[in-house]
Design a binder for these strands. Structure first.
Lengths: 200, 200
DNA sequence: ACCTGAACACCGTTCAAGT
DNA sequence: ACCTGAACACCGTTCAAGT
């Protein structure tokens, strides 16, 4: 871009498209994301993306995959920073997930949307599983110390995650913040969640 | 279509479009719903829908509105048929919601997505509120009899609904049924939900 | 190997015009 | 009042061709 050369592209078109895609995703939603627009943003012809993404869905899949990897990093960090107390660890995970999901609402929706449909690449499901491994581990820990009801850890973790994800879904769609400050609400919800997981 | 008359349309184009829209929605998703396709299905020119729906979003909003009214009918019926026992009433509501949402996955996603967009008509939010009134009432009941933690009923109901909605969201996106039979899973989840709501 | 340019079939939306 | 037909600007996708 500096001197005279001006090659086909400034380096890695694939990465540039993904970056522009993430911006466009949060800006106008997955519905209105246009490959041609991304190509323009990045300065290539509208047919150039084809080299790197077979079609629009392939680009969306790649974005979702990156999303799961980002989430994994966040969750892993959160659990590492949390102390040994079980409730604190669970709260840290929950907070981290909510923070990630509310920071990237459109990406989160994409990650959990029809991506799972017909021809979704298996890497997506694998990345999702890796992302949630910390949560699974936490539940299993909790079960060993008796802080969590017994049962298949995967199942228990999924129930807990579903509750959290529902909160995030409603928040990101504007159904909660009318009358609720999210932070306080989250604390209450997670408290309730932990209460629901406790043996009785 | 029968004799010679062949008027502009067979009656109510608006209703016909909504019906075709609901089918198309569940068939190929809101993303790929095409106004022109609906017009073809119904047998009018591609510009005819404009009389009844200002644009595509207006049709989607109308579909979502119908969805909330359908949900309201279902929930009202479920609570009416349930006995006096609180847990049974809550379970009935939860079951009814899950049944509705898994029967109409794309419509459910639409109902909780486009809802809050910039120019969403206020009728949508009102219809949503009416739909969930039975749940709000049930929580308030539970609080009077001491079966549910105290606190603003709206807030408590929203936490509970969020949990359920998360379950539905994961189910409808194929993230649960790999390894879990939904019915048994739902029972466990609702049990946990009720446990979370109980004072301790 | 990577990108361009033209082309095709499809959209949503608009608007004059028909009945 | 309700619908048609042509038109416009935009897509996603394909493919020969350039470097």
């Amino acid at each position: 871009m500096s001197a005279t050369t001006r090659p086909y592209h400034h380096g890695n078109l694939r990465e540039a498209l993904l970056e522009a895609g993430e911006r466009a995703l949060e800006a106008h939603g997955a519905q209105n994301l246009s490959l041609r627009e991304l190509a323009r943003d990045v300065g290539v012809s509208h047919a150039a993306p084809r080299r790197h993404f077979a079609d629009k869905q392939a680009l969306l899949d790649a974005l979702a995959l990156d999303g799961f990897e980002g989430l994994r990093t966040i969750l892993t960090g959160a659990i590492a920073d949390a102390g040994p107390d079980f409730d604190a660890r669970l709260l840290a995970l929950a907070r981290a997930y909510v923070a990630y999901a509310t920071d990237h609402p459109a990406l989160t929706a994409l990650m959990f949307a029809s991506k799972h449909q017909d021809g979704a690449p298996p890497e997506l499901a694998e990345a999702a599983e890796r992302a949630f491994a910390p949560a699974l581990t936490a539940v299993a820990e909790g079960q060993r110390t008796g802080a969590v009801v017994p049962g298949e850890p995967e199942r228990v973790a999924k129930v807990a995650f579903a509750a959290l994800h529902g909160l995030v879904a409603l928040t990101n769609n504007g159904l909660l913040d009318d009358d609720l400050p999210l932070d306080a609400f989250l604390d209450e919800a997670v408290e309730r969640l932990v209460a629901g997981l406790r043996p009785r």
